[in-house]
């Protein structure tokens, strides 16, 4: 294995990730876990694992600060990573990570647990504009998670079940709480699970498309984040925008990779 030259950690609301990259910015090591409510503890554990691979620059080991590699933290819990050399927002990190993976600019959609974002990336990889969902959770992964729970569909089967039907009902509420009660009333009226799920996906994607329009769509359209594992998301996004959706190889690691790439610049 090549030597880890920089580290990036992305502490998200649903998952936490850490990535180690080599001199060329390739991912050569990573860990991905469900987020622990005790962020500090999880970060400590990640860094323990990281230290097995390489010493970390900013953590004084036996009083020697100069040994090791830099670590950049991102994600909503970034400020809790006291060991980080620096913190950078997930906007900048995602853009950097995806640009590195795909080699071109465009419009990146990242649907996270509590935040969704749309980032306009220039051909040189710079952030040109961005938009995030408002306070309400309607445009995020949590929206689907809650209602899928209510319908008794396991998260892993969500996409499969959704795509198994051509029928669809329209869900008008954009508020998670109201959408849930809308779903309950649909169930009460005897509507099957699949068309409801498809309607929910459509409703979520429509919110995301509205964010894309506010930033302005610069093709190609790219998608990252945990929800990529749900095949219904890219498919419906494609239907709604008429654009082919490109997904990087490690869609969940883009933030951490971006952080590591920024860390690598500190070495160079």
């Amino acid at each position: 294995m090549a030597e880890v030259r920089a580290l990036g950690i992305d502490v998200g609301s649903t998952t936490a990730k850490i990535v180690g990259i080599d001199d060329d910015g390739r991912i050569i090591w990573h860990v991905l876990e469900q987020a622990d409510p005790q962020v500090g503890k999880q970060v400590e554990k990640f860094l323990e694992l990281a230290r097995e691979v390489t010493p970390i620059l900013s953590v004084p080991i036996e009083g020697e600060r100069e040994i090791g590699v830099p670590l950049i933290a991102t994600g909503y819990g970034r400020k809790l990573v006291h060991q980080a050399t620096r913190t950078v927002t997930e906007i900048t990190c995602h853009a950097r990570g995806v640009f590195r993976e795909l080699g071109h600019g465009g419009t990146l959609v990242d649907i996270g647990g509590q935040d969704s974002k749309v980032i306009g990336i220039s051909p040189k990889g710079e952030v040109v504009d961005f938009s995030m969902n408002d306070k309400c959770a309607a445009g995020t992964g949590r929206f689907l998670e809650n209602t899928a729970n209510r319908l008794g569909v396991h998260l892993d089967r969500l996409g499969e079940v959704t795509l198994s039907t051509v029928e669809e009902v329209s869900i008008s509420s954009t508020c998670t709480v109201f959408a849930e009660s809308e779903v309950i009333s649909l169930i009460a009226h005897g509507v099957a699970t699949e068309p409801i799920l498809k309607g929910l996906h459509r409703s979520l994607i429509k919110r995301v498309v509205a964010m894309i329009r506010t930033v302005g769509l610069r093709p190609p359209l790219m998608l990252s984040g945990g929800v990529v594992r749900n095949p219904a998301i890219p498919q419906i996004l494609q239907e709604e925008t008429g654009e082919e959706v490109i997904i990087p190889r490690h869609p969940q690691l883009m933030g951490a990779l971006g952080a590591a790439l920024i860390a690598l610049e500190l070495v160079e």
């Binding site: 909503y76 950078v88 927002t89 997930e90 906007i91 900048t92 935040d115 710079e126 952030v127 040109v128 504009d129 961005f130 995030m132 408002d134 306070k135």
Partner: peptide, 23 residues
Amino acid sequence: IEVDISDPLSSQATTRIEAFFEM
């Protein structure tokens, strides 16, 4: 950025501001 002045600045708002400065 949109805020409710009763609330402390949300982490999402600070992230937006920080990302804007990075940009």
